[in-house]
């Protein structure tokens, strides 16, 4: 049974399993997010997707990425209250990630240019806002190489025992999805270094460019039961090859 909600005064019909963020985006309303990704569970960590929610006579702020819609909800996505507290949370995150362009730009939208906040613990990863998106992405890919370690202000992201993890395949998904791009990853033509270990690349048979790490291929081959030589060409060459084949068929 669909539920009826209002977003910024406009009536919307929504499925009960949808989140406020999904419905808002579907209706073209922009809400900023940092720690949210459709493909993984939302944890409501960064608090930047705050909206004002009126339900049953009560008005309160809530994060929209992890709030399910309920019948009769009225959502306002851009009130002064919302702006004020998005700004305050952004100031805190800017204090953690002063070098992140993304945070800086978003903070600027809310009138925050510099942060007075200096975290009292030295960060394990400079620039990390502790949103655990990397952890969730890694888990969703079936590796679970990363963990949120400790709690409160001492929390940090790391590998088990802070040592190179045997479950890490060096896919780099964490680094790519990280909102502040703070995970150190160094690629050479032949190797990738991340989370304290260096992985060899499988080189493209055609052009020699990196395809993926050897361990990543092994993992994929094992879990997807693919032939051992499945990933041998890079995406670009694969496309070229395909295009070539189509061209031949077409002629």
């Amino acid at each position: 049974m669909p539920v009826q909600v209002k977003i910024n005064g406009i009536k919307m019909s929504a499925e009960p399993q949808e989140t406020v963020l999904q419905v808002a985006r579907r209706s073209g309303v922009h809400i900023p997010t940092l720690c949210h990704l459709e493909s993984v569970e939302s944890t409501g960590a960064c608090r930047v997707c705050l909206v004002e929610m009126k339900l049953g006579g009560k008005t309160q702020l809530t994060t929209s990425c992890n709030a399910g819609v309920e019948d009769g909800m009225e959502i306002m996505t851009d009130t002064p209250e919302v702006q004020k507290h998005r700004a305050a949370n952004l100031e805190m995150m800017l204090g953690r990630a002063p070098g992140s362009q993304k945070i800086r730009a978003l903070a600027r939208e809310y009138g925050v240019y510099e942060s007075a906040y200096v975290p009292s613990e030295d960060p394990a990863i400079p620039g990390c806002i502790l949103c655990e998106l990397c952890v969730r992405v890694c888990e969703a890919l079936g590796h679970s190489a990363l963990a949120a370690v400790s709690r409160g202000g001492k929390k940090y992201i790391g590998t088990p025992h802070d040592k190179p993890s045997e479950s890490c395949v060096g896919c780099g998904a964490c680094a790519e999805k990280c909102p502040t791009r703070c995970i150190e990853m160094t690629d050479t033509k032949k190797t990738r270094t991340i989370w304290g270990q260096t992985f060899d690349f499988v080189s493209c048979e055609t052009c020699g460019a990196p395809v993926m790490t050897v361990r990543q291929r092994t993992h994929a081959v094992e879990t997807k039961e693919l032939p051992e030589d499945y990933y041998t060409t890079c995406v670009a060459c694969k496309q070229k090859n395909l295009a070539g084949r189509f061209a031949r068929v077409g002629s």
Partner: peptide, 14 residues
């Protein structure tokens, strides 16, 4: 603090 929310974790630290 469990350390999940920016506001709670960093706000209290601040």
């Amino acid at each position: 603090s469990c350390g999940n929310c920016t506001s709670c974790r960093d706000g209290l630290d601040w």
